[in-house]
C-alpha cells in the first residue's frame, strides 16, 4: 500500500509538471493581458514600465522558468487585478465552494444510493418508475435552466428561500461556513440542489443498474439459501458489491463539482472559486487563472488517489498489496 502511494505520488509530480506547461502555454495563447492592465490614456513609458514590472517582455520560456521557480516556493504569482497573491485569493474562496460541493455530495449519497437500491429491488413498482422518471429529468436538464427555474419558483413567486449569497456565516477555525446557521442553511438549499441534481440522477441510475445485476447473481441466491435476513442481504451482500462502481463515479463527479461549480455559483451569486475564475478570465488575470488550474489538477490527483484507496478496501480482488 505504501509503495503504491509513493509510486503514485512520484507519477503525480511528472503529471503536475506537464500540466503546468500546458496551462501556461494555454493561458499565454488566450491573449495579451497588457491592454486590460494599462489605462487607455497611459503614455508609452507608463505602458513599458508595467510590461517590465510584470515580466511580460521576457520570452515565454523565461517567464515559465520564473513561474516554476516561484511555484516551488509556494508562490503562484500575484493577481494583476487585485495585486494580491493568487493562491491566497483562491484560498479565500475555497471554503465556500467546498461547502457547496460537500453538501451536494452528501445529498447525492444519502438520497441516491437508497433510492437506487429501492428501484433496483422493485423495478416494476410504480414508485420505482417515478424515481427513474424524475432522475431522467435531473439527468437531462441543464444546470443553468434548473437554477433559474428554482429561483423563480421558490424565491420570486413563493418567497420561501433566498436566491443569492451565503447568508449568515459562522467561523470555524477562522473559516467562514454557512451550514451552521439557519439563515446560512436556507441560502444553501437551492444551490446545493442545483449542484446535486445531475450527480443524484447519475447515482440513482448507477445504483439501480448495479443492484439489478447483483440481485441476479448466484451469491445473492446463495445468501438467501443460507437463510440470511433480507436486511443483511441488501446492506452487506448487495450494497458492498454495488458500491464498487459507484465509488469511482462519485470520485470523478466530486472533482467535477468543485472544478465546474461555476454555473451554480454564478446563478446564486455564491462567492466561491467558480465565480472568481470567471471574473479572472474576463480580465485575463493570468496568475489567478494559472493558479486555479494548477489547484484543480492537484485536486483531481488527490481525489483519484483517495478513490483508488477506497476501491481497494471495497474490493479485495483489487487489493493494492497484491499488485507487484
Amino acid at each position: 500500500m505504501a509503495v503504491f502511494i509513493l509510486r503514485r505520488l512520484s507519477q503525480s509530480v511528472v503529471l503536475v509538471l506537464v500540466m503546468s506547461m500546458l496551462v501556461f502555454l494555454g493561458v499565454f495563447a488566450i491573449g495579451d493581458p497588457i491592454n486590460t492592465l494599462v489605462a487607455p490614456d497611459a503614455t508609452e513609458e507608463e505602458r513599458q514600465a508595467i510590461v517590465v514590472h510584470f515580466g511580460l517582455d521576457k520570452p515565454l520560456y523565461e517567464q515559465y522558468g520564473r513561474f516554476l521557480g516561484n511555484a516551488l516556493r509556494g508562490d503562484l504569482g500575484r493577481s494583476f487585478k487585485f495585486n494580491e497573491p493568487a493562491l491566497a485569493l483562491i484560498a479565500q474562496r475555497v471554503p465556500a465552494t467546498l461547502e457547496l460541493a460537500f453538501a451536494s455530495l452528501l445529498l447525492t449519497v444519502v438520497l441516491g444510493i437508497p433510492l437506487g437500491l429501492y428501484a433496483g429491488f422493485r423495478p416494476n413498482a410504480r414508485s420505482s418508475r417515478l424515481i427513474m422518471g424524475v432522475s431522467a429529468f435531473g439527468f437531462s436538464v441543464p444546470a443553468f435552466w434548473l437554477g433559474l427555474m428554482m429561483v423563480m419558483l421558490f424565491s420570486v413567486f413563493l418567497g420561501w428561500l433566498p436566491a443569492s449569497g451565503r447568508g449568515t456565516t459562522v467561523a470555524i477555525l477562522g473559516i467562514p461556513v454557512s451550514f451552521l446557521t439557519w439563515d446560512g442553511l436556507k441560502h444553501m438549499i437551492l444551490p446545493v440542489i442545483n449542484l446535486a441534481a445531475f450527480k443524484l440522477s447519475l447515482i440513482i441510475r448507477l445504483t439501480r443498474a448495479g443492484t439489478q445485476e447483483v440481485v441476479m447473481s448466484d451469491y445473492v441466491k446463495y445468501a438467501k439459501a443460507k437463510g440470511l435476513r433480507n436486511g443483511r442481504i441488501v446492506l452487506v451482500h448487495v450494497l458492498k458489491n454495488t458500491l464498487i462502481p459507484i465509488t469511482t463515479v462519485l470520485g470523478l463527479e466530486f472533482g467535477r463539482t468543485i472544478a465546474f461549480a461555476v454555473v451554480t455559483e454564478t446563478i446564486f451569486a455564491w462567492p466561491g472559486m467558480g465565480k472568481l475564475i470567471i471574473d479572472s478570465i474576463s480580465v485575463l488575470d493570468r496568475p489567478v487563472i494559472v493558479a486555479y488550474l494548477m489547484l484543480i489538477v492537484v485536486m483531481f490527483i488527490v481525489i483519484n488517489l483517495v478513490v483508488d484507496i477506497i476501491y481497494s478496501t471495497l474490493d479485495p480482488r483489487m487489493r493494492l498489496e497484491d499488485q507487484r
Partner: peptide, 24 residues
C-alpha cells in the same frame, strides 16, 4: 428463512460465483 441454511442447506454449482467475492 429459519429453515434454510440451518435444517436445510444448499451447495451450488460454481463456488466462485456463489461465494460473495468481496466478503471474507
Amino acid at each position: 428463512r429459519r429453515m434454510r441454511g440451518s435444517r436445510m442447506a444448499a451447495i451450488f454449482q460454481d463456488p466462485l460465483m456463489t461465494l460473495n467475492p468481496v466478503l471474507r
